[in-house]
């Protein structure tokens, strides 16, 4: 995106925040990330790796606009982006787009076009864009956001979704790559305190870490995934199992997360998260523990300790996160 386009977008968003009753929401986001890596034996400024898009010090915004006619909403425009900084990254200053889509109510389903979550696994329903602990999509099994189109329909018993995306993740690259994914879920988490999903996905995706291509040509990817989220009192459990093939090799990934919310309004959250992967004969794991303290409505402090078996690395990372409505 050019500087001029960014300026126009920024001015539009700022001017849109002036009215008293409005059809849009605009949030400002600011975060600081720093930690230490035992493998690198030095301070780090990212939560996963310098190339990954996950948490880095940065500044961003989150904008949602309801598109309305005379008497009804007919769609939503969502843009969520940030400028991230990491002195160790190849691109020290990086523009990251998360949401960038238009969603239209088509009656039989909601249709979206742009950059959104593919209909695959637990990450379809869990927004990690501000969190330190990663899900499977950050370890090469799917994408947190992807370019393309999709549809979703909420049902009395849950939700069904389908997406056809480029399989390139954050950057839009077209080299014969694509990812088709479908997910059905039983339960509405906020209503039923559980959600169980079953996903199928297949295509030729780019082997990519953040904006860096690992291989030039797309690779084959097919999988079936089952996921479950369960809430009970102050406990939160999440799990996903994914089985399939990636780049001609068998693939297996297991994800679990157990969280407990403490203090009034769940201000303090403790989490433990094992993530185990096998591609071909290669096993690896990412074992994480995390703590989040919501200091007030806008300010959250997070910390994570993570053992990465592939890199024989133990990382301790701290994050100060600020999210404010404008």
């Amino acid at each position: 995106m050019s500087k001029r386009s960014l300026a126009v977008l920024g001015l539009t968003l700022l001017s849109a925040s002036g009215a008293s009753a409005q059809s849009h929401l605009l949030y400002f986001e600011l975060q600081g990330v720093a930690g230490y890596s035992t493998a690198e034996k030095k301070a780090i400024y990212h939560s996963l790796s310098a190339d990954d898009i996950m948490q880095k010090t940065g500044i961003g915004f989150d904008y949602v606009l309801k598109l309305s006619g005379r008497s009804r909403d007919f769609g939503t425009l969502a843009i969520q982006a940030r400028l991230a900084y990491d002195p160790a990254a190849a691109r020290k200053l990086e523009f990251q787009i998360y949401n960038a889509y238009v969603k239209i109510k088509a009656g039989f389903a909601d249709l979206w076009v742009g950059h959104n979550r593919p209909a695959l696994g637990i990450s379809y329903a869990l927004d990690i864009h501000a969190l330190l602990l990663p899900t499977l999509v950050m370890t090469g099994f799917g994408f947190d956001r992807d370019w393309g189109a999709g549809l979703s329909r909420d049902l009395s018993w849950g939700n069904a979704a389908f997406s056809l995306t480029t399989g390139s993740g954050m950057p839009l690259w077209i080299k014969g790559n694509y990812l088709a994914a479908a997910r059905v879920a039983k339960g509405v988490l906020n209503r039923d305190n559980y959600e169980a999903g079953l996903s199928l996905a297949g295509g030729r995706i780019l082997d990519i870490i953040g904006h860096r291509l690992v291989s030039e040509d797309p690779i084959g990817f097919q999988c079936v995934s089952g996921d479950l989220t369960y809430l009970w009192n102050n406990l939160e459990g999440r799990a996903e199992i994914l089985v399939g093939r990636k780049d001609g090799r068998s693939a297996l990934a297991l994800f679990g997360k157990l969280g407990v919310n403490l203090l009034g309004e769940g201000r303090l959250k403790l989490e433990a998260q094992p993530l185990v992967m096998k591609t071909g004969e290669d096993w690896s794991s990412l074992l994480s523990g995390g703590v989040t303290y919501q200091a007030d409505a806008d300010f959250a402090f997070r910390a994570m300790v993570q053992r990465d078996s592939a890199f024989k690395d133990t990382r301790v990372v701290f994050q100060v996160y600020y999210y404010k409505a404008l």
Binding site: A21, H24, S68, V188
Partner: peptide
């Protein structure tokens, strides 16, 4: 200070359930 508001899980479904006679709705933020 700021915080995130309280949205319906699925506005289309929830509005139809609570107001079966409705033909549409508009979302306003205040």
């Amino acid at each position: 200070y700021a915080a995130v508001g309280c949205d319906l899980n699925d506005p289309d479904r929830d509005v139809k359930r609570l107001f079966p006679e409705s033909t549409g709705f508009k979302t306003r933020y205040v």
